[in-house]
Simulated scan of single mutants.
Amino acid sequence: MSTTRLLLLGVVRIFQPAYGYQLRRELLTWNVQEWANINPGSIYTGLRTLAKHGYLQELEEGPGQRPGRTSYKLTADGDTEYFTLLREMLWTVDGFHPDRMQAALSFLWSLRRDEVLAALEARIVQLEQRNKAQPFSERQILEDPATPNHVVEMLRIVDARDRGELEWTRSFRDRIADGSYAFAGEPADWTPYPGMITLWGEIPSPPAD
């Protein structure tokens, strides 16, 4: 649910004010139905839920509007929630939910370069620690007569993902440190949607203590 929430808030933030069908169409070009397990039909429901919770503002077109003609934009609470979720997914490794980092990658440009680098360093440490703990987690399963031995393969597939992510994170960190890509407060390094240009120049507040 948190992945879906970040994706919806993030795409509204880019295109606001935007109609539900426009947001749905954009997210489907990102193939979210494949890697984020989002049912395309649930996007409208998700937008309405976020509006109900005060994260989005619904902008009505007036009497007689057709279904799907409600447009959305972020509220102040929605903007805060967006950065909270983005930072949570960027700074925290979750081996059982790789879609969270995938979602964070979609919006890293809205953070400053130094924060992204610090978060990647933190992820590297977490992944290294998980790798060191792996043999002991396996031993615990194999030595427990009440646990089927094949359960160890569930740990091993997560460990394989972790090791692959560790290699990628180190390379990604190095590319960013060398100046690749563009982040908040920097000139865009590609031609973004017009509404993103203003956002690119905004410097987000640092995370709360």
Rank of each mutant, 00 (worst) to 15 (best):
N131E: 15
I141A: 02
V116F: 06
S110G: 04
L120C: 05
W109M: 07
Q129K: 08
F136C: 02
Q102I: 00
L117G: 07
K132N: 13
V125I: 10
Q102M: 02
L111C: 07
A146I: 08
S110N: 10
A119N: 06
P148S: 10
A133W: 09
Q126S: 11
P148T: 10
D99I: 07
S106T: 14
S106E: 14
L111N: 11
L120G: 06
A119E: 12
A104D: 04
L108M: 12
S137E: 15
R123F: 09
P98D: 04
Q126D: 11
R123M: 07
R100D: 08
D99E: 15
D144K: 00
P145A: 11
R100K: 13
L105T: 15
Q129Y: 05
R113V: 02
V125P: 00
R113M: 01
W109G: 09
E128A: 12
L120W: 09
S110F: 04
E143R: 06
R112K: 05
A146W: 12
R112H: 05
L120A: 10
R113Q: 03
L117H: 09
N131G: 10
A133L: 09
E138M: 01
R113C: 01
A103N: 07
P135A: 06
W109F: 09
Q126I: 11
P98E: 04
Q129N: 12
R123P: 01
E128V: 09
T147W: 01
V116Y: 10
R113N: 02
M101E: 15
S110P: 01
L142Y: 08
E115W: 03
R100H: 10
E128D: 15
Q102Y: 02
L117M: 13
L111D: 13
W109K: 06
V125T: 13
L105W: 15
N131R: 14
T147N: 00
A146Y: 13
A122F: 05
